[in-house]
Design a protein around this nucleic acid. Structure first.
Lengths: 133, 133
DNA sequence: TAACACGTGTTACTATATAACATTTATCGA
DNA sequence: TCGATAAATGTTATATAGTAACACGTGTTA
């Protein structure tokens, strides 16, 4: 049986997948209001949180926004590269880098639970375009 | 000559240094209102931004808050470990790790400008305390 | 079917951040 | 020195982000 909560998760995933750039909760909200009438922020926030918990979407902390996983295999911590020119986000996976970071901060006894690794800059296509112009 | 802007920067640095945990802009605001009467959010936001630009404070993206650099030598990208138990933040510096990350995301032509690396977890002291209890 | 647990909806609010414009202060040429 | 101009700072209002608290309904279980 499909619960209403699962229905919202599916709707929101669809909105996130339509955009290759991260989408803020309120942008999702506006989109869903076009098709569903009145929708409350709470509805929107609950779903991505649970989706993030089960590894289907990323929360992009430095943008206060969400983005769907590009690839099913990536359902663990990713390094996100965020183009400040076009807004696109790429995922990279590097467990060994995460381990190095954990090792580094672990020297003082710190136990990592969640890694936030976001790199801002300019993507390849935008760099190209800039050079040509 | 000391401009008003520099005065605010100094005030705000003082507030940040009094706390070993990150402080939100609005907490700074409240503190400064106690001593300076009416202060507008804009005033508070301008100063940490310029302080962040010149490497005196970190903006902690995953907390929407600011924290002063613990050590003058760290005036470049740091890895922040954030204790979710006591709120304390530690800095680690590892240029070679940043280079590895840059190399990784650079494979697709991405040019990094700013690294956000924040690790959430539990600090050594809190782990100790938990074990004893 | 009463009583409860739990998921979802609704309202209202708090927190975070910035845009737009007003005012003050600094700078510079006449 | 004085006015014109540019730059920094102050002020107001508002946009954006996020959550708490409670209401409501639905599906259990006894």
């Amino acid at each position: 049986m499909i619960t209403r909560g699962e229905m919202w998760q599916a709707e929101i995933l669809r909105v996130l997948n339509r955009s290759h750039a991260p989408v803020t909760a309120y942008e999702v909200l506006e989109t869903l209001r076009e098709t569903h009438g009145k929708v409350a922020p709470t509805t929107i926030y609950r779903a991505p949180s649970s989706l993030a918990d089960c590894g289907r979407v990323h929360r992009v902390e430095s943008l206060n926004a969400f983005t769907a996983y590009q690839c099913d295999r990536h359902q663990h911590t990713s390094i996100l590269s965020i183009c400040e020119e076009c807004g696109s986000v790429e995922e990279s996976v590097a467990p060994e880098l995460l381990d190095e970071i954990s090792g580094l901060v672990g020297r003082s006894g710190f136990s990592p639970m969640r890694h936030v690794i976001e790199v801002h800059g300019m993507c390849g296509s935008c760099s190209m375009r800039k050079l040509q112009a």
